[in-house]
Design a protein around this nucleic acid. Structure first.
Lengths: 385, 385
DNA sequence: CACTCTTGGAGAAACGTATCTCCGGGGGCT
DNA sequence: AGCCCCCGGAGATACGTTTCTCCAAGAGTG
């Protein structure tokens, strides 16, 4: 076989129509080998700059675009990161966390792109074949439920998984979460200082980490200060149920004089419910809710909100994940022990590394009993861990 | 080479650690050939059910997961669809269209997953290598600017492109858009019927299709009914500029008694501006804005909004794109002429197929001068094309 | 019985890249 | 002069599928 025959490649008889230029075509056109083209384009190997630029020029002229599929097959890296959110209905995103998710996803997308990765959105409930059909370098999971089979399988098959929300029993590479306990305690203190005597809670029925930790923090605080808990729960994924629960909470005989709502729409719901009962905010009822929406800056009155800083979370989660991806593969395998707490090792290696991110309390009129002379002064340092 | 040696594969000496099972391993374990495994798992070929189920069982037992990269390389299909939005700043999504984009993306994700595809979000401005590193079966482009080089290159390289928003000079496979002219005319008629004498417009400075068509429709209407145009423009991607522009509009000597705002935050902005000038809505000022947010149902007063139905758009766009993807490849190439108006053909093949989707006017108190006896009655059939 | 048809399945060639291995040759050093 | 080393690059293999082609054997059929 002559060199020319070899370089011109294996297009024996069938000259396909409108074939895209491959690396072989570039090599042939530049009069070099495939190796040289690959090295020149990827900045590897030892080549004089002259060869490198010449090859690049030829590639450009031919409109050469390397095949992502072939590269992925060869290198084992796709540059793709999955972004998974636990779904409650048939929609790929949840409703209650919509603003949070949108912000978080946006930040995650930015962070990933900044490091050369792209994000693909995959609901946890999607059919399994979709998951299997995509080469993922790693996955971000938002608030995985305990014993999530999807996370377990991903982890088992060697795909790094970083979760937003402290995981229950799922084995993950790392996780990031807010310090929900500190956040709730901070709000309760804030409301107390504003004069609240009996603080109520509007919370959810689901068992995700956020709901659970927040509710536990509330109950613990009640036990500590000796207040009888006053709370209502509702399925947070049902957009209509929130208003009903808000109404229930304010209709109770032991009606609270301050309420914290765990979910985004609670502020609007509680405000509407307060109007129905003739309660004035903040005079008769102090209000705080957890939300990423800035509509609460312009409600009447503006409502104090707790921000979970989804942008920071999204950025951190993605960076941790990419660190794991690149750390694993770049080394000789030594890092695996650190980044993948192996399932075979006996206990004692400790839980996966977690990071707590600060929240931010945005104090507005709804949680200040009288003249709002100082508008910004979170009673507890938000960065506290 | 014996059959056994061949089937056991080419793992000569280096027994890699913890290797994932490949199709060869399944074939060896099941005592059949690779072909049979592939056929059994993909439902192809002619195999008795017994063999099929046996192979499937062995694959399951070994935890076999086909390599997406290899499959993509071989079949030329990745099951991945790009979702691109034109960016104005450094963020991957635009701000002004945020709710619209979020809804549209959610619907698109659902539709894609329903057909076995996944969506990857790629800002048009992202570095070129990210685009080149991902095997995309097709791309959805939101509101491409005229002569978008990215779209042109995608199209040239044979990737189907469907755009949300009628494209200017970009060659696309198909496009979907609202009938913006009909929508604006419908709103203007609606406001006129509500008693408006001079209708103002809050619009943007950018040249995207939505802004352009809407503004032109407004100007045309003004010319027709003999009203002097009263409008202010501002860079829609600047979240702060909207409030300023709203203020400018209401500060004019020829202050309008009704305003339509083209962008999501305009409702809030105009409401705030009206308060500053002591104008009561709807008594002194009728208000309509284009928004997908339901916060306008609970403002004081509730504001009439125009919905562009992003969910329908997202679903339609994705389905058109997947039709193109699968139509092209399934046939013998005959369909190419229909789905890809070839650039070589002389003019006369007509523009790419476009679909106009209806909008929906959600009438609330802000656009009804007196007692809101009938709360739902769009003055013009929203489905009109 | 000779033949064709159908069934069930095996072989091997791609897909396009990255990378490991190896090699010729020229220049410097002893 | 002989040796070693480094520069510049070529060859070949592997990544893990899908799929085209082909074959053996048994079942019908005249």
């Amino acid at each position: 076989m002559t060199a020319a025959a070899n370089q011109s490649g294996r297009r024996p008889t069938t000259s396909r129509r409108l074939e895209r230029a491959g690396i072989r075509d570039v090599a042939a056109a530049a009069g070099v080998s495939i190796t040289t083209v690959s090295d020149a384009l990827n900045g590897k190997g030892r080549l004089p700059d002259e060869t490198r630029s010449r090859v690049r020029e030829v590639a450009e002229r031919l409109g050469y675009r390397p095949s992502a599929a072939a590269r992925t097959l060869r290198t084992g890296r796709s540059g793709l990161i999955g972004l998974t959110v636990t779904t409650y209905g048939e929609e790929p995103f949840t409703f209650t966390e919509f603003a949070y998710f949108a912000e978080m996803a946006r930040a995650a997308t930015s962070a990933a792109l900044g490091r050369g990765y792209a994000l693909v959105v995959l609901p946890a409930s999607s059919r399994h074949d979709v998951w299997g059909n995509i080469a993922l370098d790693g996955t971000v999971v938002i608030d995985p439920p305990d014993q999530d089979p999807l996370v377990s399988e991903l982890y088992r098959s060697g795909v790094p998984v970083v979760s937003d929300g402290k995981p229950g029993n799922c084995p993950v590479t790392a996780w990031v979460d807010n310090d929900h306990e500190a956040a709730v305690l901070g709000i309760l203190d804030h409301l107390s200082e504003a004069g609240a005597r009996r603080i109520g809670l509007l919370t959810g029925t689901s068992t995700d980490t956020y709901t659970r930790l927040s509710t536990e923090a509330y109950l613990g605080w009640c036990a500590k200060v000796g207040q009888e808990p006053v709370y209502e729960t509702y399925p947070a994924h049902d957009p209509a149920a929130g208003a009903v629960a808000a109404d229930r909470l304010l209709a109770r005989p032991d009606r609270p004089d301050a309420v914290y709502g765990l979910f985004d729409p609670n502020g609007t719901d509680l405000l509407a419910a307060a109007r129905r009962y003739g309660l004035r905010v903040p005079d008769d009822l102090l209000l705080v809710c957890c939300s990423e929406s800035d509509v609460y800056a312009t409600t009447e009155p503006p409502i104090t909100t707790l921000s979970l800083k989804p942008r920071k979370i999204g950025t951190t989660v993605v960076n941790l994940l990419i660190d794991a991806i690149e750390g694993v593969d770049s080394g000789t395998g030594v890092d695996i022990a650190r980044l993948f707490p192996p399932r075979f090792r006996t206990a004692g290696t400790g839980p996966p590394p977690g990071t707590l991110m600060p929240t931010e309390l945005i104090v507005r009129a709804s949680s200040q009993r009288r003249s709002p002379r100082t508008t910004v002064s979170p009673p507890r340092a938000p960065g506290e861990v």
